[in-house]
């Protein structure tokens, strides 16, 4: 994970009205100012994205002329256990990231709110893993912690203390959770900083009132602070769902989807099918499924908002 987080509050708020006489010229100039950004976006993102949607219905190796095959790619995927395994891993990934980092972040952000000293220091420290390149943190964890010879777990093994009995990254039943652990290491602090910023906007009088009533840390968190930052929590959960279906970097660098297909996710599968086995048509179909799943999350969010939910 690590995509930009931007659903700005009030992004669609009103624009000041200029004098009507100049409006048409003003609008034209507006488009001129917008043009460079829009042309770049349309050329790099929109047009290729539409092509992907088209290519999903073709048999194409990336070089030859694409051959229209209708729904064949999707039928093949439906019968492909690797695809279903990857999709299931994305679902597990989503469930992990909807719970572990969000709970950690909520507890830590609430704790930061109660301390007098070191708020900014802790915040900075928790944020640091987020600015380290994925490739680097992935290698550090892989070689310095999990590795049976050079890693901390290897050292524990030599002293008979390794709770996993070996390298959890090379064991198909623990590999996915191990990579998720590393991803969460770099991720939870980012969410904690966001929640902390939201908590700081709460009127301190409300929290003090809860104190006066004799509420302890957990009661205060459950009955006062969490309900008040619910919109931020819901937004982060929606973004978590979207990002969880896109996860690529940590898995590709650490396990490349292995051992076997135990850590394969839709993004790594797309990449391999497109650039390693040259099934670009089928890779496009997987990319389309991935995007659709993220699209469902966005649509659900917009729908909830339109129903008047305070999210």
């Amino acid at each position: 994970m690590g995509a930009p987080a931007t659903i700005p509050a009030g992004a669609t708020a009103g624009v000041p009205k200029p004098r009507p006489r100049r409006q048409r010229r003003s609008e034209l100039k507006g488009w001129l100012f917008l043009a460079p950004a829009l042309i770049l976006n349309v050329g790099v993102i929109l047009v290729p994205a539409l092509l992907t949607a088209g290519l999903a219905f073709t048999d194409w190796n990336g070089i030859s002329t694409p051959k229209l095959v209708g729904l064949k790619n999707f039928r093949d995927l439906a019968a492909d256990p690797v695809f279903w395994g990857a999709l299931w891993n994305n679902v597990k990934w989503t469930l992990i990231f909807l719970t572990v980092p969000i709970i950690m972040a909520l507890v830590v952000a609430s704790m930061l709110l109660t301390v007098r000293w070191g708020r900014n220091l802790f915040q900075t420290i928790y944020f640091i893993p987020m600015v380290v390149a994925t490739v680097i943190s992935a290698r550090v964890w892989q070689q310095m912690i999990f590795h049976p010879i050079s890693g901390v777990l290897g050292w524990l093994s030599q002293h008979g203390l390794n709770p996993f009995g070996g390298n959890p990254l090379t064991n198909p039943s623990t590999a996915l959770y191990s990579v998720a652990f590393v991803d969460n290491w770099h991720w939870w602090g980012f969410i904690a900083v966001i929640f902390f910023a939201a908590l700081r906007q709460i009127d301190p009088a409300l929290l003090e009132a809860a104190d006066m009533e004799g509420a302890g840390f957990w009661q205060r968190m459950r009955h006062v602070s969490l309900p008040l930052i619910r919109p931020t929590i819901v937004l982060m959960m929606i973004m978590t769902i979207i990002w969880s279906f896109l996860v690529f970097d940590f898995i590709y660098v650490i396990t490349q989807g292995g051992p076997g297909y135990s850590t394969e996710v839709l993004a790594t599968l797309t990449y391999k099918r497109a650039f390693e086995t040259f099934q670009a048509g089928q890779a496009s179909a997987i990319a389309l499924v991935m995007s659709a799943l993220g699209g469902v999350a966005i649509a659900a969010y917009v729908w909830l908002q339109s129903r008047g939910w305070d999210v």
């Binding site: 929109l46 290729p48 994205a49 896109l246 797309t270 995007s291």
Partner: peptide, 12 residues
């Protein structure tokens, strides 16, 4: 565009 997966436009 801010939430679109890179894989959606990467291949073409």
């Amino acid at each position: 565009c801010t939430t679109v997966p890179v894989q959606l436009f990467l291949i073409p």
